[in-house]
Amino acid sequence: EPSQADLDALLSAVRDNRLSIEQAVTLLTPSSGGGSGGGSMDAKEILTRFKDGGLDRAAAQALLAGRTPA
């Protein structure tokens, strides 16, 4: 399960175009075949909204942490 520091680094990389959204989703869902963790939004949607400015960093982190299976 990614830590808050991992999520923060991942969000920074996506925002700075050092990591594509697809690459980030793969890192967030290493063994689930890329499927959502059952959250209301999947990781790709969360990351896309964050990059487009629709979500701030704290909200994106909380959503990603919340949808990651324990």
Rank of each mutant, 00 (worst) to 15 (best):
V25E: 03
G39Q: 10
L7D: 02
A60I: 03
N17Y: 03
A43Y: 14
I46E: 00
P30I: 13
G38T: 12
A9V: 09
A5H: 10
R15S: 09
K51C: 04
Q23C: 15
I21N: 01
T48L: 08
D16L: 04
L19Y: 04
D42I: 08
A70K: 09
F50A: 01
D8K: 05
L64C: 02
A5Q: 12
A60C: 05
L10H: 01
T29W: 06
D16E: 06
E1W: 12
Q61K: 15
P2Y: 12
R15L: 11
T29C: 07
L55C: 03
T26K: 15
T26A: 15
D16T: 06
F50I: 01
A13E: 04
Q61D: 05
S32T: 13
A59R: 06
T26R: 09
G37W: 09
A62P: 01
G34N: 13
A5V: 12
A60D: 00
P69R: 13
T26H: 14
E22F: 05
D56I: 03
G33H: 13
A60Q: 00
L63M: 13
R49A: 08
G33P: 11
R57W: 15
G37Y: 11
N17D: 08
L28Q: 01
N17A: 06
K51M: 09
G66Y: 05
R18N: 06
E1K: 11
L11Y: 02
K51P: 01
L47W: 00
L63K: 04
L63I: 08
A59E: 11
D6F: 15
L11F: 05
E45D: 15
P2D: 12
A62L: 08
D8M: 06
V25M: 07
S40P: 09
D52L: 07
A70Y: 01
G53I: 01
T68N: 07
A65P: 04
D56K: 04
E1Q: 12
S12H: 06
R49L: 12
S40L: 15
R57H: 10
D6S: 11
T68K: 06
A65T: 09
T68Q: 13
A9F: 12
T48R: 08
R18A: 08
L27Q: 07
L27I: 13
L27Y: 07
G38Q: 11
Q4A: 13
T26C: 14
T68M: 13
R18Q: 11
L11P: 01
L27N: 04
L27M: 11
V25P: 00
A43D: 04
R49P: 01
T26M: 09
D16V: 03
R57E: 08
A70W: 00
A13R: 04
G53M: 03
A70R: 10
S40K: 08
G34M: 12
L28G: 01
R15K: 13
S31L: 14
P69E: 15
G35N: 10
E22S: 08
S32L: 14
A62H: 12
S36G: 12
P30S: 15
S20C: 03
A70T: 03
N17P: 00
V25F: 04
V14W: 02
D8P: 03
D16F: 04
T48H: 05
R18Y: 08
E45I: 06
Q23N: 08
Q61H: 08
T26S: 14
A70G: 14
F50R: 00
S31C: 15
Q23L: 09
G53L: 03
T68L: 05
L10V: 11
L47T: 00
L47D: 01
E1M: 12
A13H: 04
V14C: 02
R67E: 15
G39L: 14
A62M: 10
F50C: 01
A65M: 12
T48M: 09
E22W: 04
E45F: 03
E1C: 13
A24D: 00
E1A: 11
Q23E: 14
D6P: 06
L64N: 01
R49G: 03
A70V: 11
Q61W: 05
D8G: 06
L7H: 03
L19C: 05
D52K: 06
A65I: 07
L10C: 03
L10N: 01
Q4C: 15
T48K: 07
D42Q: 08
G53W: 02
G66Q: 13
L19I: 15
G54E: 14
E45K: 04
G35E: 14
L10R: 01
A65E: 15
G34V: 12
A65H: 05
L28A: 02
N17C: 05
D42S: 13
G34Y: 02
P69M: 08
D52R: 05
S36Q: 13
I21F: 02
G39S: 13
Q4G: 10
P30D: 06
G35C: 10
P2F: 15
L19T: 04
L64R: 00
G39F: 08
K44E: 08
I46T: 03
I21R: 00
A65F: 05
Q23V: 07
G33S: 10
K51E: 01
S36C: 14
P2K: 14
L10I: 10
D56R: 03
A70L: 01
P30Y: 11
Q61L: 15
S36W: 13
S40Q: 12
L47S: 00
A43G: 04
P69G: 08
K44H: 11
T26N: 13
S40V: 12
G34H: 07
E1S: 13
R57F: 15
A5W: 14
G38I: 12
L55P: 00
D42V: 06
G54D: 11
K51G: 02
G34S: 12
S12W: 04
R18K: 14
S36M: 14
L63P: 00
D8H: 06
G37S: 09
L7E: 02
V25A: 08
P2E: 10
A62K: 13
A24E: 01
T68Y: 11
Q61F: 06
D52N: 09
N17H: 06
T68D: 13
L10D: 00
R57V: 08
T26Y: 09
P69F: 02
P69W: 02
N17L: 06
Q23S: 09
S12E: 14
P69S: 11
A24F: 02
V25T: 06
E45C: 09
D8L: 05
A62N: 14
I46H: 01
L7R: 02
S12C: 10
A62D: 15
L7F: 08
A9E: 14
D6K: 08
D52T: 08
R67N: 15
D52E: 13
L55G: 01
A65S: 10
I21E: 01
L27F: 05
A65K: 10
N17V: 03
P30E: 11
G33A: 07
D42M: 09
R15H: 10
S3A: 10
L63A: 12
P2L: 14
P2M: 10
D56G: 05
D16Y: 04
L28P: 01
G33E: 10
L55M: 07
K51D: 01
P2V: 07
L27W: 05
P69K: 10
A43I: 15
L47I: 05
F50H: 02
T68C: 11
R15W: 10
T29Q: 14
S31A: 12
E22R: 04
S12Q: 12
A58I: 08
Q61S: 15
D56H: 04
T48S: 08
G39A: 12
S12K: 06
R57Q: 06
D8I: 05
D52C: 13
E45M: 05
E22L: 07
E45T: 07
G35T: 14
G66I: 08
I21A: 02
A59G: 07
A43F: 15
T68P: 11
E1F: 09
